[in-house]
């Protein structure tokens, strides 16, 4: 074999080895996803399911966006589909329980919500579920600013009070819920009720002084998340001060402050008045020279 051929053979052999190494290399391992299912019902209206999708990266959970999840009621079949959703940037997706499942919904006192991800190039398939019982929450208030919250669960065909349910009674605010007094949480008694005294007298409400009371059961193992709201006239009347349409330095040209206009225009007229006089003066000089 000629030396050139030898060199060529060695290069080809090394090339094959490299290609082979690359070719037989394993594809990167797929990640595992965790699907958390949560059940919500607000003001005892249409319940909805919220699914949270996360994965572990470097020992920490991170929410995963763009994951398609199929949601089912009780069993994984075509007739029990709640909906197909895709997680948002926070790794969350929601779906209302559709009216088409009303019959199925009424057949049982407890339901299991199933979430299923079929898997893709990056993640293995994953499933999650949650079983909750049917419950409802009621709120009432008295003229003496006392609030009563009642919790009931469906047993057989009747709503029965539930004892020992932990809940929050608060005022709904823009940045979160403000407890109605110093007690952070309340627990229902044997009649299924919990009471609280309202001690936020000076709190600003709307123009009529209305505020919104909210009672919440959060992440309850048996009932999920229930909340109810009620508007009461217990707040201070709030009149918004809006300077938008007033005369300010930052307003539109027709809303310039009077003081600014007076100063600016008087200076302009004074200076240009003098200049006008000086131009007129030229004509006077001209007349004297003719």
């Amino acid at each position: 074999m000629k030396p050139l051929n030898k060199i060529s053979s060695v290069i080809i052999a090394i090339g094959c080895l490299l290609v082979g190494y690359n070719g037989f290399a394993q594809a990167p391992a797929k990640g595992d996803l965790s699907l958390g299912v949560n059940y919500f019902i607000t003001n005892n209206k249409v319940p909805y399911v919220l699914v949270r999708v996360k994965t572990k990266v470097d020992g920490r959970f991170q929410m995963v966006a763009g994951i398609p999840v199929s949601l089912f009621l009780d069993k994984d079949s075509a007739g029990t589909t709640i909906g197909k959703v895709v997680t948002n940037e926070q790794g969350e997706a929601t779906a209302l329980i559709p009216t088409s499942l009303k019959k199925q919904w009424n057949t049982s006192l407890k339901h299991t919500f199933l979430a299923s991800f079929a898997g893709n190039k990056r993640y293995e398939s994953a499933k999650g579920d949650l079983t909750v019982g049917k419950a409802k929450i009621l709120i009432s208030s008295t003229a003496g600013k006392s609030i009563t919250v009642s919790v009931f669960e469906m047993k057989d065909t009747a709503w029965m009070p539930v004892k020992g349910v932990e809940l929050k009674i608060a005022v709904k605010r823009l940045g979160g819920d403000l407890p109605v007094n110093e007690t952070p949480t309340f627990t229902t008694d044997s009649t299924g009720t919990a009471s609280a005294d309202f001690k936020r007298d000076s709190i600003p409400g709307d123009a009529k002084g209305n505020i919104i009371l909210i009672a919440k059961i959060e992440d309850n193992d048996q009932y999920g998340n229930l909340s109810i709201e009620k508007s009461v006239p217990w707040g201070a009347k709030f009149t918004a001060i809006n300077k938008f349409n007033e005369r300010t330095l930052f307003a539109t040209r027709d809303k310039a402050p009077i003081w600014l206009q007076l100063i600016a225009y008087s200076i302009i007229f004074a200076v240009w008045g003098i200049l006008g006089y000086l131009v007129f003066n030229i004509f006077k000089i001209k007349r004297l020279g003719v």
């Binding site: 003066n281 006077k284 000089i285 001209k286 004297l288 020279g289 003719v290």
Partner: peptide, 11 residues
């Protein structure tokens, strides 16, 4: 028009 008259100079 300038004639250097005292009136013109004054103005």
């Amino acid at each position: 028009f300038w004639k250097n008259t005292p009136e013109q100079i004054k103005l």
